[in-house]
Design a protein around this nucleic acid. Structure first.
Lengths: 364, 364
DNA sequence: AGGGGCGATGTTCACGTGAACATGCCGCGT
DNA sequence: ACGCGGCATGTTCACGTGAACATCGCCCCT
């Protein structure tokens, strides 16, 4: 029964059972194997196939084996569209983000994808190339049309305000890099605490004050890091230098570094991310300002490369994987309990990693 | 007609038309708006709604307006699962990859997502955390169960061999970072040409030979870069040093650098990626070997940071965005023409970017 | 031995959409 | 004036799945 080359025979038969077929006998393989095809081959009803497919109890061993054999033979795959239609759920989480290239977001997305997969959810990605209100709106509209049960948004929240109305009700939202804890669930690194640790470290080394190269003002993470930097300095009664505006790029850090190299009393800089810190290091190197002997530098993120900068960079480590994990946890809790009501903010601790780019100020 | 708060009134009515509702009057918003709901409100048949929704001709202006108004009022979104079921297509491309964190893959994915979105396709991501045959197989199995029309695979092909049988027929495949041009469509940076350019550049500067810090042997990209390096040296009749094995990480580059710093006649190194080049730079710096005066270093990738290394790194630029674009183009061509038969390899040119980490050897 | 119950399997139907076909109306030509 | 054609819209049905209900047979208990 199963020795006489059934595969070549059965497939065309099942395929021929459909109407279309385009009349080509040996041409295209065959469109798709459905439960009915499997049921016919196994000599059972399609409902029994369904039960086997879903691991329901109540199917006797021999029947189950027959069905499984038929599935293997035909290469049956459940049709997720039909399933989604039947269940009203898609087992898919949408992720809306700006650049995947930016530090952290790719690692966060990776963690989201990994944990979602472990829970049987797939990830659908929608990137926004240019951060305009229209594009954000469009992304949400598209997401609303897509088969998603929840959406994770990785971006500055203020572009979000009018956008979520585009999502169908019942689609849950969790946001990263924002402070909209009153409207959505928020997961984020504890930016403020990380930044405080960085600045305090420099003050404890004996620096009189700490300069700051900030991220772009449009970023909440950048705002919070700058805010924490200012707060620590003020609390310690230190002068607060004018922060230099960066845009996360190494180039902006380099530009800032050239300026800071001219400030004779600048002995410590807190850069809002590692890339800008890299730019600082190069600028100071070019200007003959030794790090850490003349100037200490602290970054933020702890990219894998930071340990191999010249000198190895003292920086604030972000646990992006944990952020991603908690995002998934958050939306899944909402999906499963239907509870949309407790947004709140979930902060993932950051920790300072001390390497060789910080030292006490030169004792003149 | 549209001034007296229709939204609050209509939605519950449409919702009440369903069976479940869980009896909670003011509780959950409502499940989902279907064509039937819109049709009822607009006073037309659901088919007319369908025609409007799909932009078909043959609907008179006034009717169309009524339907559109009803859609807006109810917040109607087409159900993509039902659509997918009806059409047999999903307008979704699956992407299977290893680490998103690795240089390039995140930028490739981003380009894939952007171009797919422009074509009306969504991206479903499945990451593989540990590169075992089982995990790869599992990823393909899951992809087969998901609603995808095509799959783009970003990984070393040799784990792939037995895996694609898990995909339903009719699902098209394009592969990145591989040489399986005879079985699948392949898109990749022209690794060999890029590496040749790097090595020739160093030879043209007058270096007697070039050392190599390779990527992991499991990577085809690494293999091709190493192969091209060897070929150029042999063609020029130069001695071929034993390559040092790296694993893409800055740390492995650092380790290799400490060894190379002890080689008195090593004046030029080609690192298989920028991160390892960073490790080299730090090792040479620590050992007092000046770059480029004592040793020239070339990397590969041209990460955004490479221009801000100390010194700015000469490296081979990869156009990941173009790779992503061509991947999408490739699978869409397959989907649209149904033509699976012309795999072939599509190579994206790489180009050398000369910065300050290379110079003629010191004239002793 | 007969009936009741339970376990295995089959049948029916709805999920939301859109193609194919059906209907019905209006205008134009003879 | 009558009929026919074309266009706007309605009706039916299938896509693949799985819950709910129906059926059938077997075993156990009295």
């Amino acid at each position: 029964m199963d020795l006489n080359g059934p595969e070549q025979q059965v497939a065309p038969v099942a395929g021929g059972a459909r109407r279309g077929g385009s009349g080509v006998p040996g041409g295209r393989r065959k469109q798709r194997v459905s439960m009915a095809d499997v049921a016919k081959l196994a000599g059972v009803s399609s409902q029994t196939v369904s039960r086997v497919s879903n691991g329901h109890t109540g199917v006797i061993g021999s029947t189950r084996e027959q069905v499984l054999a038929a599935m293997r033979e035909l290469g049956y795959r459940p049709n997720s569209a039909a399933r989604a239609l039947r269940y009203g759920r898609f087992n898919t989480i949408g992720v809306i983000l700006f650049s995947l290239s930016s530090t952290g977001s790719s690692r966060t997305v990776e963690a989201i994808a990994t944990h979602a997969a472990a829970e049987g959810y797939a990830i659908t990605l929608i990137p926004i190339d240019v951060a305009t209100q229209d594009n954000v709106l469009g992304a949400f509209t598209r997401m609303g049309e897509l088969a998603v049960d929840a959406v994770i948004v990785i971006m500055e929240i203020h572009l979000l305000d009018t956008a979520t109305v585009q999502l169908p009700p019942g689609v849950h939202v969790v946001v990263v890099d924002s402070d909209a804890g009153d409207r959505y669930g928020v997961v984020d690194t504890d930016q403020a605490d990380g930044a405080r640790g960085a600045v305090r470290h420099l003050l404890e080394l004996g620096h009189r004050t700490v300069w700051h190269v900030s991220g772009p003002g449009s970023s909440y993470a950048a705002q919070r890091r700058a805010q924490a930097w200012r707060t620590v300095l003020e609390a310690a009664g230190r002068p607060v230098p004018v922060p230099l505006d960066g845009d996360w790029s190494a180039e902006s850090g380099y530009t800032a570094g050239l300026r800071l190299a001219e400030e004779p009393d600048c002995t410590a800089v807190f850069a809002a991310n590692d890339q800008m810190a890299l730019g600082l290091l190069r600028a100071f190197h070019e200007r003959g300002r030794s790090v850490p002997a003349d100037i200490s530098v602290v970054g933020f993120d702890d990219t894998p490369d930071a340990a191999f900068f010249i000198p190895p960079l003292t920086t604030v480590h972000q646990d992006f994987a944990e952020v991603g994990r908690r995002c998934v946890e958050g939306v899944l809790r909402q999906i499963r309990t239907g509870d949309d009501s407790r947004p709140g903010t979930d902060l993932v601790p950051a920790r300072l990693v001390v390497r060789d780019s910080t030292a006490p100020p030169r004792t003149t």
